[in-house]
Simulated scan of single mutants.
Amino acid sequence: MILLHFIPLTVGFFLDLLIGDPHFLPHPVRLMGKAIELGEELMRKLFPDTERGLLAAGAVLGILIPLLTGAVSGGILLAAYRLNLWLGLFLETIMCYQILAVKSLKKESMKVFDELKRGDLAGAREKVSMIVGRDTEHLNEEQVAKAAVETVAENTSDGTVAPMLFMAVGGAPLGFFYKAVNTLDSMVGYKNDRYLFFGRFSAKLDDVLNFIPARISALLMVIASMLLGMDWRGAYRIFRRDRFNHASPNSAQTEAVCAGALGIRLAGDAWYFGKLYPKKTIGDGTRPVSWEDIRSANRLLYGTAFLCLGVCLVIGAIMILIMMGVG
């Protein structure tokens, strides 16, 4: 019974590719976001507004939200499977589908592609502002394209490979646990005045959970670049050289592969909340970043996603063999 989650994972993967994330349907990540907002408000009231108080408040929130998310999803699935096997499989399939974000990432980034292709820089800035955390109102065409490519590259790990690996190990509940940590980091894991201390625990926990998946993602992306006829040698070379050119120990892993595969330069200084943050660059930049690179980054995303599904199924086969041996 414990290995049944590989069926929902596989079906959920293809459901995500087919229908993505329709905005008119309720989504658990939006509920997580609301819970984080309410939890932050409560924690700030319960703990003193000091460095130690904010660190403690953020840690409590960073522990409670993922645990509650995993426990609730796990409880629902446990009850469903006890009632009826098919009901359990159906609910877990829907959960796995909702955890993944392959098609939605492509769809949102391709909106930026479409605006740049039309020559509408203002529209492209607006569309890219929906998928990045940086200030976008003064970006030029190349900077907008670069921001979109970086988002696709980074989220190839965060939104695809990492949740799939967690679901392969522990089903939808562990996938939701990971998704809650990732959502916390995206909402409170900033190094600005408001979240420098409050968001530190969530940011560090996200770094820990993504440490192995980010590196698996990068290696799968190198393989995908080879299968897609891209510069896989350049991808591996830039990965080896620039994979730590980021404040996060994980974000540059896939960005470096993407930059090398496409022959472009990513990262560099960026504005956040009206403040310029100096950043190292990633890649050699043999040519300027263009809107066509957004489409190429999405090809890498899809290729990596399918390779990851294969890895997950191999994990499942190994687990079955181990259990048969124990039995």
Rank of each mutant, 00 (worst) to 15 (best):
M1D: 01
I7D: 03
L9H: 00
F13N: 11
F14I: 00
D16S: 03
L17I: 15
F24Y: 11
R30Q: 08
I36C: 03
E41F: 08
M43G: 00
L46S: 02
L55E: 15
L55A: 06
A57E: 06
A59D: 11
L67T: 03
L68Q: 07
S73Q: 14
L78D: 11
A79M: 11
Y81G: 08
L89D: 07
T93Y: 00
A101H: 08
V102H: 04
K106V: 14
E108A: 06
M110S: 04
R125V: 03
E126F: 13
K127C: 01
I131P: 05
R134E: 12
N140Q: 13
V144P: 06
K146Y: 09
A147Y: 04
V152R: 01
N155Q: 11
T156D: 06
D158E: 13
F166S: 14
M167G: 09
F176V: 01
K179P: 01
M187E: 07
Y190T: 08
N192I: 05
S202M: 02
P213Y: 02
P213R: 05
S225V: 02
R233N: 00
R240P: 00
A252W: 10
V257Q: 09
C258H: 03
A259D: 07
G260T: 04
D269P: 05
K275T: 06
Y277Q: 12
G285C: 01
T286W: 09
E292S: 07
I294P: 10
N298H: 08
Y302S: 07
G303L: 10
F306S: 01
C308K: 05
I318A: 08
M324A: 13
G325L: 06
G327P: 01
